[in-house]
Design a protein around this nucleic acid. Structure first.
Length: 297
DNA sequence: CATCCGTGGGC
DNA sequence: TGCCCAAGGAT
């Protein structure tokens, strides 16, 4: 296998975008928040939200002090609001189990709510300089093309970590750069559609290019239609509660939604997820009011 | 392992 | 215009 590390490092030195989490001295907490936000949300949408979030909650403990409702509100329209709830839980876990310091150890990171294989290693590597393979969807596509000669990666697998580990140089800092460079290449050059092979540092040895760019089938499943979906209904319910500064009567939540059963199903699932609290016919974001102790309790 | 989970921009 | 896609994770 050709050496991918050297051309990736050289290319990254010139082509890396200037992003907040790449600034020197950026805190590990900021890296963790950015990785939560970047889970399935494009960089351009994340940047302003990240800066507002860190200005409001500069430490995990500061976030943990506020109720989850505030996290869900601040998350605004970033999408997948469970991530806001999970980030709040992770902040609480960091405060309670790690003295308020974002852990460095991959296993400790993996134990945090909402932190999986990607995020745990991204924090260990990019915030702390540890040497691990970091594999996201961009890296998987780059490896699928450059190494395997396929147009798209297969289903995500634990083997992806081993494949990435194989191309990492021994030095910690160089390994971190290769991890970042593979992601950056996939995000800006080796893109899902219309890859820019003319400026790719791996073009000379790319197996996919050498094979004549065969379409090896996309392996990816089509995303379910959003219009009319339960997800859309959930999003609409949550928006009503985010925009309200107090609890809302159940009957006032989307009274004109085309499918009342779907609306009720959305509310139930949000309650089940912990994103909404319901009692006495009222709905509110979690922890947004202090529950009154029943008389005589 | 397949499915579910938001939202918006680009083509 | 509809469809594709986006630094994943939990169940």
């Amino acid at each position: 296998m050709p050496d991918l590390a050297a051309p990736l490092i050289a290319w990254y030195r010139d082509a890396a975008r200037d992003l907040p989490w790449r600034r020197p001295g950026f805190p590990a907490w900021g890296t963790l928040v950015s990785e939560f936000m970047l889970q399935q949300t494009p960089v351009a949408r994340v940047v302003p939200h990240l800066e507002a979030w860190l200005a409001r909650w500069p430490t995990p403990a500061s976030l943990a002090e506020d109720p989850p409702a505030e996290a869900v509100r601040q998350w605004a329209n970033l999408g997948y609001p469970r991530r806001a709830l999970w980030l709040h839980r992770a902040a609480t876990e960091i405060r309670d189990r790690h003295g308020g310091v974002v852990p460095r150890d991959v296993d400790a990171l993996l134990a945090l709510t909402g932190v999986g294989d990607y995020t745990a290693r991204a924090v260990a590597v990019f915030a702390y300089g540890e040497r691990h393979p970091v594999v996201d969807t961009n890296t998987r596509r780059v490896l699928a093309r450059a190494v395997e000669g396929r147009s798209q990666p297969g289903a995500p697998s634990r083997r992806d970590l081993a494949a990435m580990a194989e191309i990492l140089p021994p030095d910690d800092e160089a390994a971190a750069t290769v991890n970042a460079a593979a992601m950056e290449l996939g995000a800006t050059v080796c893109t899902a559609r219309a890859p820019r092979c003319d400026v790719c540092p791996l073009a000379a040895t790319c197996a996919w290019r050498a094979a004549g760019f065969p379409d090896t089938g996309d392996g990816r499943r089509r995303q379910a239609r959003y219009e009319g979906s339960d997800r859309q209904a959930r999003g609409a319910v949550l928006k009503v509660l985010r925009d309200a500064d107090h609890e809302v009567p159940l009957e006032a939540v989307m009274p004109d939604w085309p499918d009342p059963l779907q609306r009720d199903r959305a509310i139930d699932s949000l309650v089940s997820d912990g994103l909404v609290e319901a009692s006495l016919g009222m709905l509110r974001l979690p922890g947004s009011v202090s529950p009154r102790r029943p008389r005589g309790a």
